[in-house]
Design a binder for these strands. Structure first.
Lengths: 205, 205, 205, 205
DNA sequence: GTATAAACGAGACGGTACGTCAGGTCTTTCT
DNA sequence: AGAAAGACCTGACGTACCGTCTCGTTTATAC
């Protein structure tokens, strides 16, 4: 997703210095930063390439040179930020590990980053490329990490061995995303606890 | 959501009939039908008011007279269709009632109507009015119905009395909406079963 | 110009009174008045039928029932006003008669009525029907009156007999209309005098 | 009138060349040409920006980038054409110079260009900017040229020294514009002669 | 009186053009 | 060669009026 012209040989790998102005790494970073700002301020729909270019003090062309469309920039911008990266702890209790992670996740979702995540999921409904980027760049990494935690629980005998981890993860995190997307009820730490308390007993041995 | 001029006193409440040509009900219906068609054909992003007007053989003004924006029309179009209305049965077993309902719901979500629902949820992220319409016009009705089913289960002694129905519903339907919105894994009847089998044991006495 | 339905038999000529509500003369008058107001306020281009209807508290249909288009209403409105009707005096000197008339005409042109006249002439460039109405309803009456004055001058021996009255009138009033329409220089009483002093010697015996 | 962004420093005055794609002169020319074509075909009222854009194969935005409204484009289109530029000759007789010029002017006014001129004068009644453009871009140049001719006549002793050239010009050309604008009588070469014959004797020594 | 018919207000309706915004491409100039 | 500035075509936006068309109400004859 990072570049539409991925075929090009990156400057670092190619010792033969090519003529011409070098790709300005600061410019890239600036674009991504401003994109994230604007995304959190106004959401995906209000976001425009022209707006990003203006805010970053950059020509539209420069953006189009490196990303295919709005979704591309936004995805890169989101992935380049770190606010949403929440490591799992190993407290000894899987239930506790997941509860703590979900509490922190809920906290992130209530921050501007949450708006960005919702915007990306929503944007995925009108742009399959964006959807795929979100899944491969964000979701799958988090899910495989969480899956490890569940498998650890199975090994330790906390979780029943016949539990399907994919489904189990959905029943834990799905409700959180559901409230994020529809806003039909508040998304609080207490809610994270409640979901864990409702679901985990059914997974335990 | 039915009219941007909600300030007007509806005819039923106000015996003083307003003068002027009456709103042509056929036109309205036609607009909503064509909207649904186009929505299912090309998705929410591709949908344009001009497109709807052209397809329905109607002036753009007529659409803007009654709905504030694209989201409004789409919402009304969706609510006026019946394909997504799935009644709960009473088989005697709450678990079975919900499983059957979820299977049918999954089937609907895989039809064009599912695309519309996803579009509406996504649209709600950029338009709070739309979000609220979706919640009050679609979600809350379905949730209160489902809540009745759960409460019935508690009465019958199938479900633990200390279960929070709101949270329980989220753990059942949240995963389904999660897959609908992110598409990270297929949404099948088997998945509906799996979710029920994962969650229900934790709710049972 | 008064009615689009000129085929109808006017009430006066037809003793058989038709049933039905009679044309409300107050409504008509009100429409014409408000039209004139709006014309003087914003000019012909800004004038809209909807605007007239709103200002007069009248349905659009009522206007379209009696006039074919904007030009029709405006023309009738203008002709029904009297501010622009300036009689010629008979002072004994044709030169003086015309000078006095032109001074008063200039004064009218500097009033809101002048704006209306300019608007009508301008409007005639986009609507030949309006142009023709203006000529037959306004111009020709004034010109034939002025022609009488010139002919009187010829009889009395003040004006050369070989003067073409049409051309002579153009050289007297044309300059005034010219300044009205282009505004390239102010339109004052002194200017009226100057034109008369410039042209009349060439017409005198 | 040439550009709505008159604040910009024109390239000629500013040696620092600005970056960015240069204004495509062919596009401009094409727009103006097609505008003139359409103006002459259907008149000012029928002329639409969309029509011009379509005919010129140009985006509407490109037109709005450089001109504030219809009147602006038309004015530029008119001024960029040369059909209406009629030089004065020096035959030795001022009367003859003016008569010949007026005859040619009348001929132009009977061509499509005349329709454009009338449209511009009419348009000036609803747009003071257009009116001013017309005066400064078209009228004043012609009038100062004509004034020179009259002054030459005074020097030579053909014209009385006490004649006010401004008023004299109005009495000569005003009648022509009058007929152009109202169409109350045909505008022929003979008419040009008649006006000259009526007015000039009063100006001669 | 009671039917009949037209005038009238209100306003819905299918349209056309408006002037604006953003998208994505292309060109020019500077670094 | 990379980057900025910005001109360009495209297409949809939401608005203003157009001129036509129902509606129900009101007002005047005519039976």
């Amino acid at each position: 997703m990072s570049s539409r012209r991925s075929a090009r040989i990156p400057a670092k790998e190619c010792e033969l210095k090519t003529p011409g102005r070098k790709r300005c790494i600061l410019t890239q970073r600036c674009i991504l930063e401003k994109t994230l700002e604007l995304l959190e301020e106004n959401g995906y729909a209000e976001l425009t390439i022209e707006g990003i270019a203006a805010r970053a003090g950059v020509g539209k062309t420069t953006i189009y040179r490196w990303w295919p469309n709005k979704a591309g920039v936004v995805m890169d911008a989101f992935l380049s930020s770190t606010s949403h990266k929440i490591p799992f702890l190993d407290t000894g209790s899987v239930r506790e590990d997941i509860r703590l992670h979900m509490r922190r996740f809920v906290k992130v979702l209530n921050s501007p980053a949450g708006r960005a995540i919702a915007a990306l999921i929503a944007g995925g409904r009108m742009d399959e490329v964006l959807a795929e980027s979100f899944r491969s760049g964000f979701l799958s990494a988090r899910r495989s990490e969480a899956k490890q935690v569940l498998l650890r629980g199975i090994e330790r005998g906390e979780i029943r061995a016949d539990v399907n981890p994919e489904v189990a993860l959905d029943t834990l995190y799905g409700p959180v995303y559901f409230r994020l997307m529809t806003g039909h009820a508040p998304l609080t730490s207490g809610y994270a606890d409640a979901v864990v308390e409702t679901v985990m007993p059914g997974l335990a041995v």
